[in-house]
């Protein structure tokens, strides 16, 4: 599963970006680490992949990665999704570094929409791709106003949204991109990961870096930092659960994807984290199998 380092494409600098740009990005990252959860503007570059497809994450990864690193790229938890394959290939081609699908072997993990099920260590870095870095954007469209709200820690309106959810549905409705408060100060978007993954961010060993290319923002959570999901005392934050297990490895605790198996309403669930699922199968776990058994 681990692909060794390959010859780097000679037409480009190591990891595509020129060294000046990498330094600029690193300065932004350092500032972001120093002010956990604060969005640091940076001179995001045009990349050879479209905006919204991970250009922020790619620039962050390109700026921190070195020859000795081993890169894992996931999208929706899986290494084999098209966008993950594409980004992994991009780095294999422009940096010639080793890549892996094994979470434990990776030194840098770039992700879109998930955090691996396995606990990350403090010698690892996880890089999130972020489409909309501003957690207040849905309540206030103007950047000038949201910057001010962050400056003044004026976050009451976020709770207004949660209040509305409870008044309307009896519980908080946000299921992904669930806002978090970092180290008791900055309200932050965790990127569109399911809220299932929010607790993993709290006191995580790995450095967490967030890159938003189109919106030109970088932010970070240093290792072992307090990350609280917003809630009310009498309506505490809760993660989603499934009344099902993975058809392949039988796990009932991991985040499950629904796969539609026919046009008669048949479906089954499988682990979204393909590496996690594979590891469990190797360890001898077995799920109920395909659609016939599960429906």
């Amino acid at each position: 599963m681990t692909a060794p380092a390959t010859a780097q494409d000679s037409g480009y600098n190591f990891a595509y970006l020129d060294e000046q740009t990498k330094r600029m990005v690193r300065r932004a990252i350092l500032k972001a680490v120093a002010i956990p959860g604060h969005q640091v503007p940076f001179g995001s570059r045009e990349m050879p992949l479209p905006y919204g497809w991970g250009t922020g994450g790619i620039q962050v990864t390109a700026s921190i990665i070195g020859l000795a690193d081993v890169l894992k790229v996931i999208d929706q938890g899986a290494d084999d999704t098209t966008n993950a394959v594409s980004i992994r290939r991009f780095f294999a081609r422009t940096a010639g570094i080793a890549t892996t699908e094994k979470t434990e072997d990776a030194t840098v993990i770039q992700t879109r929409h998930r955090i691996p099920e396995m606990n990350l260590r403090d010698d690892q870095i996880i890089v999130y791709q972020v489409p909309i870095p501003e957690p207040l954007r849905w309540l206030e469209a103007r950047e000038t106003e949201t910057r001010k709200m962050h400056g003044l820690a004026d976050y009451g309106v976020m709770h207004v949204k949660l209040y509305e959810d409870i008044a309307k549905y009896g519980h908080i409705e946000t299921s992904y991109d669930y806002p978090v408060l970092i180290n008791g100060r900055y309200l932050m978007s965790p990127s569109p990961i399911p809220k299932f993954d929010n607790p993993k961010m709290h006191e995580m060993g790995a450095l967490q870096l967030f890159g938003a290319g189109r919106e030109k923002r970088i932010y970070a959570i240093p290792p072992y930092t307090r990350v609280e999901s917003l809630d009310f005392e009498d309506h505490p934050f809760q993660v989603q659960t499934w009344g099902a297990v993975c058809a392949i490895c039988g796990d009932g605790e991991s985040f499950l994807d629904e796969v539609i198996t026919d046009d008669q309403g048949g479906s089954m669930y499988i682990c979204s984290d393909t590496d996690h699922c594979g590891r469990r199968v190797v360890a001898g776990h077995k799920g109920p199998g395909g659609p016939e058994e599960s429906t």
Binding site: A78, D257, V259
Partner: peptide, 10 residues
């Protein structure tokens, strides 16, 4: 959906 009848056809 990751997979569905007819599959993903790039």
């Amino acid at each position: 959906f990751k997979d569905l009848p007819g599959g993903q056809v790039l």
